[in-house]
Design a protein around this nucleic acid. Sequence first.
DNA 1: GTCCGACTTGAACTACGCTTCAAGTCAAGG
DNA 2: CCTTGACTTGAAGCGTAGTTCAAGTCGGAC
Lengths: 125, 125
Amino acid sequence: MTLLDIAEVAEKSGLAPSALRFYEKRGLVEPAGRNGLRRTYHPDVLRRLDLVACARGAGFTIAEIARFLVATPSDDALRARMAVKATELDDAIDRLTRMRDSLRHAATCEHVPLVECPDFKQAIS
Amino acid sequence: MTLLDIAEVAEKSGLAPSALRFYEKRGLVEPAGRNGLRRTYHPDVLRRLDLVACARGAGFTIAEIARFLVATPSDDALRARMAVKATELDDAIDRLTRMRDSLRHAATCEHVPLVECPDFKQAIS
DNA sequence: GTCCGACTTGAACTACGCTTCAAGTCAAGG
DNA sequence: CCTTGACTTGAAGCGTAGTTCAAGTCGGAC
């Protein structure tokens, strides 16, 4: 079993070693063990870190992700939170889509200042 | 011309008065004038604040929004930043969509722990 | 056996986006 | 005129997500 040291995990995940220690403190990852003082990680930790990165990108906080990671199907409160989050994401996707379209329009429109362009305003409001 | 005081703007915009003063310091809004020391706002400030809220929701920082708000069509650097932002939003929309689908799945699946559900993982990775 | 560079720790520091506080001003109603 | 309570200011504080630092440990190559 080829365990990884913190520098390898940092390199492969794109995170700083300090971030990995921080995530550990918050319960997002666990080292497989130690070699002396030094953390050793199971390669699977990389998939976990991908999941964390994805969730972070979707707007979840570290604390929320930590709760997800220990969840079981019987955790109805968590399921409810997930459903709420899904709905929030619907809204967020909507807003982001409108903002993206506005930005693409702004890249070509000639209004001064840009924010006063009627198309721009219409697109984002 | 019915000007608004800060409490009215706060109430109508959903922002705290302190947030309005903070936004002013950062150049996002300007009061129309003062009544004594007290700020008075043109009703149009509410549309401006909607725009700010929308941009914030789309992941722009206060500083970025401030730059947008003074932009003219000749600001090519800004146009370039907008194009980059639009592309980033494409990615963000993608991630959010996958995360939302994963959450909706997680709300019904029976895996223990949820994060180990193959469908869940497949959806987000 | 020694050395060194990468690791360890906790604490302090950073940036962002505000909120809260202390101290003071002042518009407006009685 | 006087009170009152909402406003003003700058400074300090807070939560999130880490990074940086100082001081110390130690695995492993020589």
